[in-house]
Simulated scan of single mutants.
Amino acid sequence: MPTLLACGSNGAGQLAIGHVEDAAVFSPCVFDPSCPPFESVIDLVSAASHALLLVSAEGRSHLLGAGTNTHGQLGKACALTDSSRPATSFRPLSIVRDAGFEGWEPIKVAATWTTSFVALESPDGSAARTQVIVTAGSDDFGELGGGVIRLKDGERVEHLRGGQRHVLAVLSSGSGNARKQRVIGWGAARRGELDPKPQPPMGKGKARVTRTRPPTELTLELSSPIIDIALGASHTLVLLANGRVLAWGSDLKGQITGLDDATGVRAIGATWNGSYLLTDKLWSQGSNTHGQLLRSDAGETRAPRLPVPLEAEAVEAFAAGSEHILALARAAARTDLWAGGWNEHGNLGVGNTIDSAQLLNTGVRATRVWGGCAASWALV
C-alpha cells in the first residue's frame, strides 16, 4: 500500500494517525483491518473534524473516513458510530448504503465544514451508466442540497469541490466537439459565492440570499472548457483550459481583484481568504494575516497579486489548506514538499507551530499533496 502521511489539527482524530493530539511533523496514517489493501489514492478531503479518503483497490474505488461523526458526515451506520470516541484510523464508510445506492461506486469526494459529498456511478451492467451526488452531515447553510442530487440523463460529474460552506459541481455531457459543461452550486450564498454576475451594492436594510437549496445552475460565459475549480470561505475560482480564470464572490480581502486579467495559468488554489495561481511562477493575493501569501508583507488584508519568492527552482504542483499552502517544488535536482502560512496546529509539518511567511522545505519527498482545515496530507 502507498504511504499516506498527515500533520496538523487532530482534536477529532481526523488525521487518522492513531491518536487525537495535534501533530507538528508528518506522521503515517493508520488503516483499520476492515480497509481493503489499496493500490492508489484517488482523492482526499478534510474539513473541521473529519476526513474522506477515496482509494482504488482491485480495480474498484472505496470510500474511507476518519474523525468524528457528530453531524452524520461519516454516515449513519458506519463503524465510526459504534462509540462516542473519535475514529483515529481510516475505516470504510456507509454513506453510499445509507443513501440507498448499495453497489454504486464512489468516484469523487468533497467536504465543507461538517458535511460530506460523494459522487457515485451506477454498477457495471446496469442499463445505462448513471451518476448522482449524495450528501451527509450538517445542513446549516443548505449544504445537503436536498440529500440526493440527480443529474440529467447522460451527464457525469467532472469536478466536485467544497469550500467552507458552499459547493460547486461541474457536470458534462457528450464528447468531442459535442461536449457540453454546466455548473451547479448550493450552500452559503450571502457573499455572492454562487453568483458569477457582478454584485451591485445592496441598499440599506437589504440582504442577499443567505443560502441556496436545492442546487442552482450558474450562468457562465465560457471561452474554453473548465479544467478545475477552487473554493475559499466565500469566493470561487474557475480555471479554463485556455489559461484564463473566472472569479466571483467576496472580495473583502482582495482575493479576486484582477483575476480576470491573469493568463497562462496552469493551476489554481484558494485558502479561506486568498487566491493562488501557478503559471511559470506561483502568485498569491488576498489576506496575509498569518503570512499565508508567502510574502514579507504579513498583516496586509488586501495584498495585490505578486509572485511568491522561492528558494526552490520551480513549483511543480501545489495545494491550498484553510490558511496555508503546500507545494511540490524542485531544488537541487530533487522534488520536496514545501509549506508556508498559518501553522497554529503544526500543519506545516516542520516540527513547530510558528507561522511562516515563506515556503519551508519539510524534507518530505512526496508525489501528491492535499490541504485541509489546518491539516496537511502527503502521499510518499
Rank of each mutant, 00 (worst) to 15 (best):
F101K: 10
E221P: 08
S49F: 12
E323V: 03
A47G: 10
L328S: 00
Q14S: 07
T335S: 11
G162Q: 05
V380T: 15
I256H: 03
N10Y: 04
P304H: 06
G341M: 10
G147E: 01
R208D: 08
L237P: 11
Q292C: 09
N361R: 15
L144C: 14
E121K: 12
N242I: 13
P106F: 05
Q285W: 02
D195R: 04
N343T: 07
S356N: 07
A319Q: 03
L277C: 09
A329W: 02
F38S: 02
D82M: 13
P28L: 05
D22K: 12
A111N: 07
N343V: 06
R150M: 10
T88Q: 06
L277N: 09
D280P: 02
F31D: 05
S34C: 07
V45M: 08
W248A: 05
D139T: 04
S46W: 00
W248Q: 02
G249D: 02
A331R: 12
L379R: 00
A188D: 07
S84D: 15
V45S: 09
D251N: 15
D251K: 12
L53W: 05
I42Q: 11
T216Y: 05
S49V: 14
W272M: 11
G187T: 07
I17N: 10
R179D: 00
G286P: 02
G254P: 00
